[in-house]
């Protein structure tokens, strides 16, 4: 395979990692949602490129879902929630942005070392893709643990999920990728619609998970 094809695949997967890093230092919810929309759009491009080079037309469907659902519908819905709740100001972080970025770098290094070491025999597109995908997954996890705000935790989860879709499409000829991405979209839609609009908003003025922590029974 010629190297330009590979370079583009790596560029897009690397772009996803970069967008994950950009999410880590956003301190306003609207800006965070913008970056997430960018993240989803890059994912759509990366998946479409995989569909093209693997000659797998069904992956275009996954790319379409990523573009329409995750880059447009979900961010718009979340903008609405954020505006209605009036929480577009600062995002409370548990750990400062500096240490978070350092931890993020360490995680990326870890996933590169881990994946490149264990996959010498694997398909060489899949290999780098998997390493990038694991980085995106770990950065998504990092975001979920370092944010107190429920909206940014959901965004963290969705970026984690983007990493999984990247991994699944990178694995050449993997069946059920479309079904899995649909299942994930349903999960996210449920959570965004159900948990947020109907549950949390009724009870709380803010969507800050700290407000949920007020109850201290014998938790844990």
């Amino acid at each position: 395979m010629d190297s330009l094809v590979l370079d583009i695949a790596h560029l897009l997967a690397g772009g996803l990692v970069l967008a994950s890093f950009m999410m880590l230092y956003q301190d306003r919810l609207n800006a965070l949602l913008n970056v997430f929309a960018l993240h989803a759009a890059i994912l759509a491009l990366a998946v479409a490129w995989q569909a093209y080079i693997q000659n797998a037309p069904h992956l275009y469907l996954t790319a379409g879902i990523a573009l329409v659902f995750k880059a447009l519908v979900i961010p718009l819905a979340l903008y609405r929630i954020v505006r209605q709740l009036g929480i577009h100001r600062e995002v409370e972080t548990v750990v400062g942005i500096g240490p978070t970025m350092l931890a993020g770098m360490a995680l990326v290094a870890l996933s590169l070392v881990l994946m490149l070491r264990v996959t010498p025999g694997a398909d060489y597109i899949a290999r780098e893709d998997l390493a990038f995908a694991l980085s995106v997954i770990l950065l998504g996890l990092l975001m979920m643990v370092t944010r107190r705000n429920a909206v940014s935790q959901v965004v963290g989860f969705m970026s984690l999920e983007n990493g999984l879709v990247l991994a699944a499409t990178g694995a050449r000829g993997m069946p059920l990728v479309v079904e899995i991405s649909v299942a994930f979209s349903i999960l996210i839609a449920f959570i965004v619609i159900g948990v947020f609009l109907f549950r949390i908003r009724e009870r709380f003025d803010t969507v800050d998970v700290g407000a949920l922590d007020r109850f201290r029974g014998d938790r844990g």
């Binding site: 996959t119 999984l164 991994a167 899995i180």
Partner: peptide, 14 residues
């Protein structure tokens, strides 16, 4: 778990 599942497929595919 999904990432693990994908890795199983990657191991099986060759």
């Amino acid at each position: 778990a999904l990432f693990g599942t994908i890795l199983v497929y990657m191991a099986a595919q060759p």
